[in-house]
C-alpha cells in the first residue's frame, strides 16, 4: 500500500516534470518512466486483488507504453533531429504554476464525487484526473508536434489510472481496444510529425495555420 502511494507520488512528479523540461528527448524518457510506473502499479494491484486480467494489462502497459510508444517517438525524433527543444505559448514557470492549479482542481473535483464503487483509496483519483488535465494542457500549450502527441499519451495514461483505481480497469477487451487505438494514434502522430517536418522544415505547429474560417 505504501509502495502504491509512493509510486503515485512519483507519477505526479513526473507529470509535472513534463511541464518543466526543455529537450524533447528528455520528455520522451519521462513519458516512458511514467508508463513504467503505471504498469508496475497495475501489477501491484493485480497481486493484491488476484485479478489475472490486470497482470496482462500491467505487462502490456510496460511493453507498449513504456517501451513501444517511446521507441516510436524516439525514432521520429532522430529523423527530425535530436537537438529539438520544446516551444510553448506559456513560459515554464507559468506552466508549472498552471500544473499546480490543475492538481488542485483534481482534488476539489473528486472530493465532491460520491463514488461508492471506489475500489482503492480516494488519494489516487485526484492524481489521475490531474494527469488527464495536465495532458490536455500540454496539448494546448506546446507548439511542437511531438510534444502534443506526448500530451495525448499523458491523457490516456491518466484515463488508464482512473479506470485502474475506480474499477480495477475496464473490461478486458475494452482495455485492449483502447491500447490498440492509442498505439495506432501514436504511429500516426510520428508519421505526421515526420511529414510536417519534411514539408515545412520544422515541426512547429505554427505552420499549420492555413485553414481558417
Amino acid at each position: 500500500m505504501v509502495l502504491l502511494q509512493a509510486l503515485s507520488v512519483v507519477l505526479m512528479m513526473s507529470t509535472l516534470a513534463l511541464l518543466w523540461i526543455k529537450p524533447i528527448g528528455t520528455a520522451i524518457k519521462i513519458l516512458s518512466a511514467q508508463s513504467l510506473i503505471l504498469g508496475l502499479m497495475a501489477i501491484l494491484i493485480a497481486v493484491r486483488t488476484a485479478t489475472p486480467d490486470l497482470y496482462i494489462m500491467g505487462g502490456l502497459t510496460i511493453l507498449m507504453k513504456a517501451i513501444g510508444i517511446p521507441w516510436i517517438l524516439w525514432c521520429t525524433l532522430r529523423k527530425v533531429g535530436m537537438k529539438r527543444e520544446t516551444e510553448k505559448l506559456v513560459g515554464r514557470e507559468l506552466s508549472i504554476l498552471c500544473g499546480g492549479a490543475l492538481l488542485a482542481i483534481g482534488y476539489i473535483v473528486t472530493a465532491r464525487l460520491h463514488l461508492s464503487a471506489l475500489n482503492l483509496g480516494r488519494e489516487y483519483l485526484p492524481i489521475s484526473i490531474s494527469m488527464l488535465l495536465i495532458g490536455l494542457f500540454i496539448m494546448m500549450t506546446h507548439q511542437k508536434a511531438i510534444m502534443q502527441g506526448i500530451g495525448l499519451v499523458v491523457m490516456e495514461n491518466g484515463l488508464f489510472m482512473v479506470a485502474l483505481v475506480t474499477t480495477y480497469g475496464m473490461p478486458f477487451l475494452v482495455d485492449i481496444g483502447v491500447f490498440l487505438d492509442v498505439f495506432v494514434a501514436v504511429i500516426l502522430i510520428s508519421m505526421l510529425t515526420y511529414r510536417i517536418d519534411k514539408t515545412f522544415q520544422s515541426t512547429h505547429t505554427e505552420n499549420l495555420r492555413r485553414l481558417r474560417g
Binding site: A185, R195, I196, N207, L208, R209, R210, L211
Partner: peptide, 9 residues
C-alpha cells in the same frame, strides 16, 4: 497535413 493533425488532436 494540417487538417489531419487538427482532426487527430
Amino acid at each position: 497535413l494540417e487538417a489531419t493533425w487538427k482532426y487527430l488532436m
